[in-house]
Design a binder for these strands. Structure first.
Lengths: 338, 338
DNA sequence: CCTGGCACTCTTCGCATGCGAGTGCCAACG
DNA sequence: CGTTGGCACTCGCATGCGAAGAGTGCCAGG
């Protein structure tokens, strides 16, 4: 186990390195943080920390920089979450309140997060899985063509075009619409399949084919849309990454374009609080030199989606975590209101 | 006026520079293109081309690179549009045909364009301005709460929540829905305002307030949605930009995040064919070292939106233009089918 | 008008050098 | 035993210099 002072030294190294972006030496450390000991002592501590794998030196005669393991310890034990100041909170709230619809909420959230953290922001659209159905609408566009519109309680709308196996009268359509809504409105997505399975039986034989088609399209929509969408922003902040651009930035941009990767990334965060994945803790190779700070957000007590930021492992963890947490909280509020 | 051979020299310079990314000298030129003259002659031509501002040298003793003006001449007079090969066309078509809805069409188009051109792709969602209304749906979610869903012929769906000034019965709602659709279905957006202006008069006084509210929301939606959305992709290709990364790439990323800028950029293209804006021809400063190749696409004969790519001024113009044109054509087909 | 030759200009690269930051180790001290 | 000051050592980095190479401009001759 590391002594108290050594932890302090590690903390100081992380803080200085995050600030200056340069390897930090023993002398600079004692000057900027009054640790009450001499550089020589700090050097001994640093040697110990290096043995343990918390810090490393890029080349023999340079200062030390934290390793992933060092950041991990810093995040877990040495740093709290820096809360937003009151004015910041107000600014967040004001900015988000101007949103007119769900797309706008997500877009504003991305911008806000990117701006606050000066990093790349990723916001997942509220998931349908935990949502409930607000309304299902059926529109007859042609005798054998129906449009299905699904409206969720988070304000999301999905539509599908359906080609019916047989012409379908307005009356039957109205009947189906009414029956469908009385069964599923207000219910959770997960429950829908069971609630509608016997619905075709209530219809005339010639309509059953169409009813089945409509229902299966509905179920498909419920499932498919779990391929959740997300929005990213603040990619220009990648330019603040480091000195060795092209090699670092490219894989990150590539990873960001792969929604699947990002969704998995966000999805991995199980913790109810803010989750931090540092460097090689990220499964995706392109993100091995980045850290991901994410958290769930939701309209009620339950999280319906995730949001977070992607930045260099050398980031201001307390500040970033604070910003991410605060934004998630306010987005949740906005969603609950609408 | 430049002699025929000098134009050939310019063409050769552009082609070589695009290929090698390095300033091209007189000797290399005569070796790679059989111009039938000696390097010395080419040098004279180059001096002339430089006087006219078509090419420049980065430093005194280096080869020449084309200027924006040089690229402009190249695009206008010296190069055609390189058509896609048959297999490429098939691949495009196959890829786009797999799309399930409008979002997917746009997403696939972006991916495709980015991949084909190895540049940043920008695709605007089909605009509502020139669209027609397919259907307007009204849903009663609560006694004094109505949801408006607008469906366009391009498959786009917009929804708005409306708080009514007074409770509004199901019967009235159905009435309004029917009247509304009989008037506006199949009509162009631009014509809608006139078509509905006297609609409140047909209702009982106590319902008129609500009807007006609904109508004004509808009109708002028609207008607001002209703040068109777009999707971008292939940003990882920015890393192929040049050697002097950070300075070049940053403003581009920033510009790409500003939808307004991009929309203006695409909007400027008036030409019915492929439009190319080179370097400083782009109004936005951050894009002064990029070229934008764009074209309109649409489901019918008329263009409903634009798409294009953003890349370094040093790009393969014929190939890029060919790819952009081909993709636009096939997207138009797909939209027309759905 | 084209061509070969030639002197000139600059950039780039390799290499040696000096400097400074930072380390590791050791002996001494409380 | 932990802490401290001292000291030699290691390297990376910036600087300066020289050689090489690519490319140009110009000129005289065909």
């Amino acid at each position: 186990m590391l002594s108290e002072r050594r932890l302090q030294v590690l903390r100081a190294i992380v803080q200085d390195y995050v600030g200056t972006e340069e390897p930090v030496g023993s002398k600079a450390l004692t000057e900027r943080h009054n640790l009450g000991v001499s550089p020589a002592t700090v050097r001994n501590d640093m040697a110990a920390l290096e043995d343990e794998g918390y810090i490393a030196q890029p080349h023999t005669s340079a200062g030390r920089i934290p390793t992933d393991k060092g950041y991990r310890l810093f995040v877990d034990k040495l740093a709290g979450v820096k809360p937003m100041t009151a004015p910041e909170r107000r600014a967040i709230q004001n900015f988000l309140e101007g949103a007119v619809d769900l797309d706008d909420v997500v877009a504003r959230t991305v911008r806000l997060l990117a701006q606050l953290t000066r990093q790349v922001a990723v916001v997942q659209y509220p998931s349908l899985t935990r949502s409930t159905v607000r309304h299902v609408e059926l529109l007859s566009l042609a005798p054998a063509r129906v449009m299905l519109v699904l409206i969720t309680d988070t304000g999301r709308v999905e539509q599908r075009m359906i080609d019916c196996p047989a012409p379908f009268g307005e009356a039957s359509l109205a009947d189906l619409r009414a029956r469908l809504n009385s069964r599923v409105a207000g219910r959770r997505f997960a429950d829908v399949p069971k609630l509608v399975e016997d619905l075709p039986d209530a219809f005339e034989p010639e309509d059953r084919g169409t009813v089945s088609t409509v229902l299966s399209t509905l179920l498909e929509t419920l499932v498919e849309e779990n391929e959740e969408r997300l929005m990213i922003g603040g990619t220009a902040n990648l330019t603040r990454f480091g000195h060795d651009f092209p090699l670092t930035i490219r894989p990150v941009l590539e990873a960001l374009e792969e929604q699947v990767v990002l969704l998995k990334l966000l999805g991995e965060a199980k913790d109810p609080g803010v989750t931090v994945r540092i460097g090689h803790e990220n499964a995706h190779e392109g993100l091995n030199s980045t850290s991901v700070v994410s958290v769930g957000y939701g309209s009620g007590g339950e999280a319906v989606a995730k949001l977070g930021v992607v930045g260099p492992t050398r980031m201001d963890y307390p500040g970033t975590m604070g910003a991410v947490r605060a934004v998630a909280r306010y987005v949740g509020q906005i969603l609950a209101e609408s």
